[in-house]
Design a binder for these strands. Sequence first.
DNA 1: ATACTTAGTGTATAAAGTACACTATATACC
DNA 2: GGTATATAGTGTACTTTATACACTAAGTAT
Lengths: 252, 252
Amino acid sequence: MSETATTYNPSRYERPSVTVDVVIFTLRNRELHLLLVKRSRWPFEGFWALPGGFIEMHEDLDDAARRELEEETGVRDVYLEQLYTFGEPKRDPRTRVISIAYMALIRADVHQLRVSEESTDVRWFPVRELPQPLAFDHDQITAYALLRLRSKLEYTTLAFQLLPEVFSILELKDTYEQILGEQLDKGNFYRKIKEADVLEETNLTREGRGRPTRLWRFKPERGDKQFVFRWREDRSDDRDSATLLTPTRKEN
Amino acid sequence: MSETATTYNPSRYERPSVTVDVVIFTLRNRELHLLLVKRSRWPFEGFWALPGGFIEMHEDLDDAARRELEEETGVRDVYLEQLYTFGEPKRDPRTRVISIAYMALIRADVHQLRVSEESTDVRWFPVRELPQPLAFDHDQITAYALLRLRSKLEYTTLAFQLLPEVFSILELKDTYEQILGEQLDKGNFYRKIKEADVLEETNLTREGRGRPTRLWRFKPERGDKQFVFRWREDRSDDRDSATLLTPTRKEN
DNA sequence: ATACTTAGTGTATAAAGTACACTATATACC
DNA sequence: GGTATATAGTGTACTTTATACACTAAGTAT
């Protein structure tokens, strides 16, 4: 920041509260879910809301999101990404609250979640059946998170963050289908995922009726920064924006 | 936001300051520039910084960015987009300051800028020759803004926001080349831009030595939300994330 | 008339995306 | 052992998009 002409004097400024809200996604029996918390008091008493809370004074934004995530789910070390900052002056009727929205992806099968099935005030909801409306502007935030997740699925390896450590290629394909909401071709999917070279073979299988399912692991190299469905070399590993096609390229 | 278990009590919380910083891009003689302000006091006295300032208590985030933009340049009604929120606890040595970064695109030729050429403390810098380092974490913010601009150029009509109201197709191509940093093929560019159907003919020309230059105007329909270099129909008009290719699609 | 500049069109080739049929392999079950 | 069944692929033809580059067309200045 850089206030331009005014003298710096913190006490002159009435300050907004700053919070983080986290959209926590996971797969539960092959369907995408997100975590909501039931509000127990005004405002929006009885409404479902995203988990979130105030940023502490000496805490990084990402750390605040991680802390909220852990408080709510008991889970650490998951994929976390800042989405957008929502600051409409009247979004919270109590006072001015600016909220920095995050998205987290967790592997339901690996991290055992603290969220109990019976809890009535903290629950996983399938994204296709969210209670409506949510508290505050959380409908907007969840819609945005879903959009971002769908987009990034197509040019990053985000999908792996939702799967258990080992998985089959058809499970991966199924994950893509669930989130993108469309059917993918099996043969083409095999080719693409193999060509992308992001899978590491395991010697594990899962046996059942037919041919045993081969299980794979996500190649951990390059810090989860490999891309799957696009080959353009010059894509920058920015925080969120996608580099797409370059129009009518010609060598200089 | 939704603090989960704690009682809401604003006075309990020490609050960070919240500012907006704006990366203002424009084209000046065919080169991409951005606006910087020289700091006159501690911290980073004498360093160049992005224009920015505190968010007022009852002001929307976008409005704060717009206000800073207008204070610095005298320009209104330009393209404005939120980028990312930077909140590392020590980014400002004075106190905890969370900054919401914005990007603005302005047409140097249209809006007459208040920024005088002679001013020593407010200046346009070519993006390839920025002073280094900038104050605070502004190097990081400008790098991110450039990344976002380059990305979005390829799947949105953002480039038009940098051009004057009427322009030739070769000027448009030149803008793309400047920002993307690569040469594009003239013939293919003509075809693509025509096919995208985002240009409206004017009866204006600009005469010179050879055949007069035909001038065009950006089709204002659909609220600047048309896309140029990609044809996928299902791209959602979100705030920033890009929908790219869908892997191996098949009709359901 | 010629040079010069913008404004295009034509076309061959390469690369990527898509649909769909087909083969291969390892297990369970009878 | 044979058959059903599920995963795990391969083959291929076709379409769409991308790219390079040569070429034509048109209007103005000299």
